[in-house]
């Protein structure tokens, strides 16, 4: 008998299968269009004739914060991460990854990496392009790269977990993104600590010096906490996967 599959091998095989199932033309084109729309907005704002550099920067940071971190990053992450294990659970293919001599965390990590692999280019490219078109210097571009990548990692982990917890993960996730992160978190900074947007905004603020609503945490906190959220969510997802009743 073969015994337990080594972790790297288990992660890589899960990654390959999930990646293959996730990349559908409809999803990539649909979400790609959102990216294009965002970049066009960035270009339009970048073209505006605003004399004062500080106002330009403030405008630009506001735009990035709004389109990249309330829409593009959470929504793209949601679509792929929630589907990664959630879809296999819904359609009954999870059994082909579950009833195997592989540790649960390797399956979760493989699925998460697959979701991140699709989401990263679909978020980082358009948001960075937007930041460049906004034309306010490299600070915003660097901040956007860091915050987008970190946002994708954290949101993806969170939504992989969500996909294992509820049936209509995308609908619940949209509710979370719009209602919780969009409305509830806007009420104050204590609420922002339980919204990933609070941390991505803080990175923008720290790098560009432009005050944002929710953006009052230090850059270190802004980087460390999302990483911790990602790890925590993945651990919970592994536990959840282990306790799941699989069809």
């Amino acid at each position: 008998m073969t015994g337990t599959v080594a972790a790297p091998q288990a992660i890589s095989v899960t990654y390959r299968v999930i990646l293959r199932q996730l990349v559908t033309t409809g999803r990539v084109v649909g979400l790609g269009l959102i990216g294009v729309a965002v970049a066009v907005v960035g270009w339009a704002v970048g073209q505006s004739i605003e004399s004062s550099a500080s106002v330009r920067l403030e405008n630009a940071v506001g735009v990035i914060s709004l389109v990249a971190f309330t829409i593009v990053v959470p929504v793209v992450s949601l679509v792929f991460a929630a589907a990664s294990l959630g879809d296999t659970r819904e359609d009954g293919t999870l059994v082909y990854l579950w009833l195997r001599p592989m540790r649960r965390w390797t399956v979760v990590v493989g699925a998460w990496l697959a979701a991140v692999t699709v989401s990263l280019p679909l978020t980082v490219i358009p948001t960075v392009l937007t930041a460049m078109l906004l034309d306010v210097g490299s600070d915003l571009i660097v901040a956007t790269i860091i915050a987008s990548a970190l946002g994708v990692l954290a949101y993806s982990a969170l939504f992989v977990l969500l996909g294992l917890l509820v049936k209509n993960a995308i609908v619940w996730g949209l509710g979370y993104v719009i209602i919780w992160e969009g409305v509830v978190a806007a009420f104050g900074s204590s609420a922002a600590k339980v919204a990933i947007r609070g941390y991505t905004s803080s990175i923008l603020t720290a790098r560009t010096g432009v005050q944002l609503e929710l953006g009052d945490l230090s850059q270190t906190v802004g980087i460390v906490v999302p990483a911790l959220i990602a790890v925590g969510a993945l651990v919970l997802a592994a536990v959840r996967l282990d306790r799941l009743e699989v069809a």
């Binding site: 337990t4 199932q21 059994v95």
Partner: peptide
């Protein structure tokens, strides 16, 4: 974990990685 490697299951549902 190990014993799962000694089981072969053909589940009832029709789903495959299509």
């Amino acid at each position: 974990t190990d014993v799962r490697g000694m089981i072969g299951l053909a589940p009832q549902q029709d789903a495959l990685f299509d």
